[in-house]
Structure formats: C-alpha cells, structure tokens
C-alpha cells in the first residue's frame, strides 16, 4: 500500500472512529448534562473502565497527530461524556499530562531538546501557582469549574488556531536573567543537518506568564503545552523543538506539585487514572509511528472543532442546561 493511500485511509478513518466512540457512550444519550447520576449497575464498572481505556488510546493517537498534549483534550471530553465527577477527571488528567512528559523526557534531554536550566526557573514559579490553582479548583463549586473549563477550552482552541510558530526565532541579545542563569544550549537539527545554537530573551515576562499558566493547569488538571510552547517559542525565542520538549519538562514538575493536592483530597481514583494514563501513552506511541503518514493539518482542525464542541458542552453543563 502506497503512503498516499495509507494517508487517505488513516485520515479518513481516525476522526469518525473517535467521534463514533464518543457518541456510543451511554452518558451522551442518558446523562448529557449536569447533574451526574450514579451508574445504574455498579457491577458493570469494567465497561466504563474499558471504554475509558479505548477512548484514551484513540485520544493518545489523535493528540500526537494534532500536536497537542493529551491532558488538554482529556479533561473536557471525559468530563462531558463519562459518568465520572469532574474532580476525578481532573485528577486523572494531571497524571495523563505528567506521564506523557515523564516517558518522553529522557530521550529529549539527551538530544539537548528539553533543557533543564531553561525549565527550572519556569517550573519553580509554575509549581507554586499550579498548587494554588489546584486548591482553588477543588474549593470552587463543580458547576463553576465546569463553566470556567468550557471557557478556557474555547480560548485554548482559539489560541491554537491563531498562534503561529517559529522554527528558529532570532534572539539578538539574551536578557540579564537569562545571562545570569546561563540559559542557552544547542542541539542537532537533522532537517538542516546542523547543530543549532540557541539563547533566550524576555525571561521576566515569561516568568510572569508561566505563573498564570501554572495556575490554570492546576485548576483544570490539564497539561499546559498549549500555552507553554507559544510563550517559550514566540515570546522567549527558544527554537520550536526546544520549546515543545522543555514544556514537557516544566509540566512534569508543575503537574507533580498540583497532583499532590488532588491525591490528598481523594480526587485520584486508580480505577480512572490508570486506564487513562496507559491508554493515552499506548496511543501516543502508535500516533508517533503513523505521524508521517497522515495529514496532520486536517487532524489539527478536527481536534480544534472537537475542543470547541467539548468546551460548549462544558459551558452548558456549568450553566445546568
């Protein structure tokens, strides 16, 4: 089978498969809006766990193809279509984001793409605010969080649609903080067969923005790659690949800080978190394999549309409609 045919098949089949899975979920038919009801037969728990695993698996594939983190799609969709309370979905969402970052970390660090010195000051600020965000999120009424989540998801979809990206941004002079902290690096870029040297600027503004991003990530239990990457790449001037990889490293520290707030509140159920984490991770591996065979631009548009739908649904749930 030629690559073009494979491309067509995968592009044609994945979105309907994924959307079909969503609409097969009984929650859509019977309990679409808030409040959630207990599952009719608790002994059928394994059906939900299995569905969550299968859903997370497809989510893992789609998120790699669309170039977004699993966490940002996981929370709005699962909280809208599964019978789990938003608290548990956010708890699981943080671990989905965290595990992805942990498993990809070692190889990205060895290649010089994920940079520890760049990530440490940002994650220090971000982990403090992500703890604050997690506390605020668990203190607020569930419908308020659901409403804010919906608004946040639509805003993120708009950011993803509008924000550009720059492979190798030009940084003339690093700022004082970047110079003092010695934040710079190099990595081998196979597409141009060269070692790329990079440095950053505008670190103070970056630190302020990472504080805000950490708060939102902790509050909604989402990964924050959608915001980390544009800030690192477009504002601070890190090359795109360094921005994406370092964002994961920041997330592994911020997510861990916020995760403990959820762990202490009893908002992490292994029955939900483990199938979600393993499904997304397995799906991501498959997604990475077929990445070169599909039209990622089309998938990205479909994902943005799905995010808008999930966001609207979340807003409706928050408003009790």
């Amino acid at each position: 089978m030629s690559q073009k045919t494979g491309d067509r098949i995968v592009t044609a089949l994945l979105p309907p498969l994924f959307s079909g899975l969503l609409f097969l979920l009984p929650a859509v038919t019977f309990a679409a809006s808030a409040p959630l009801h207990p599952v009719a037969d608790p002994s059928s728990w394994w059906i939900w766990v299995l569905l969550l695993f299968v859903f997370s698996f497809f989510l893992g594939i789609i998120s790699v193809l669309a170039g977004v983190g699993g966490g940002v799609l996981f929370v709005p969709i699962v909280s809208s279509f599964f019978p789990f309370h938003l608290d548990f979905v956010r708890g699981a969402g943080l671990f989905v984001a965290l595990s992805g970052a942990l498993s990809a970390g070692p190889s990205l660090m060895r290649k010089g793409l994920a940079d520890l010195k760049l990530s440490l000051p940002l994650s220090l600020i971000g982990s403090v605010s992500s703890i604050a965000g997690a506390i605020a999120g668990l203190m607020m009424a569930a419908d308020q969080v659901q409403l804010l989540l919906g608004l946040a998801i639509i805003a993120i979809a708009a950011i993803m649609l509008k924000s550009g990206k720059s492979g190798f941004p030009e940084v003339r002079e690093p700022d004082v903080i970047a110079r003092t902290l010695g934040i710079s690096g190099s990595y081998y870029e196979p597409t141009i067969q060269k070692v790329v040297d990079w440095k950053i600027h505008k670190t103070p503004i970056g630190l302020v923005l990472f504080f805000g991003i950490g708060f939102i990530g902790g509050m909604f239990g989402m990964g924050a790659g959608w915001a980390n990457v544009p800030v690192l790449n477009l504002l601070m001037g890190a090359p795109l690949k360094v921005a994406v990889a370092t964002s994961g490293l920041v997330l592994s520290m911020n997510g861990a800080a916020a995760a403990w707030i959820y762990l202490y509140k009893g908002a992490v159920l292994p029955l939900i978190a483990v199938p979600a984490v393993s499904g997304v991770m397995l799906g991501s591996k498959i997604g990475a394999r077929i990445l070169t065979k599909v039209n990622t631009r089309a998938i990205r548009v479909i994902v943005i549309v799905m995010m808008v739908i999930a966001g609207l649904r979340s807003i409706m749930k928050g408003l009790g409609i």
């Binding site: 207990p38 608790p42 789990f84 309370h85 959820y262 509140k265």
Partner: peptide, 25 residues
C-alpha cells in the same frame, strides 16, 4: 470494593470521602 467506587464516582471527591474511604494522601 470496585463496585462501591463505581457507585460513587459521580460524586465530588469530598462527598465521596464521607461515604467511602478510598486511599488518599
């Protein structure tokens, strides 16, 4: 029991803790 967890996973974490004591912290 898993069935007990499934019977309460629609509740807020704080509410669920009042009914069943799943591991936390």
């Amino acid at each position: 029991s898993i069935e007990e967890v499934a019977a309460h996973w629609h509740m807020r974490a704080s509410e669920m803790q009042k009914v069943v004591h799943v591991p936390k912290g």
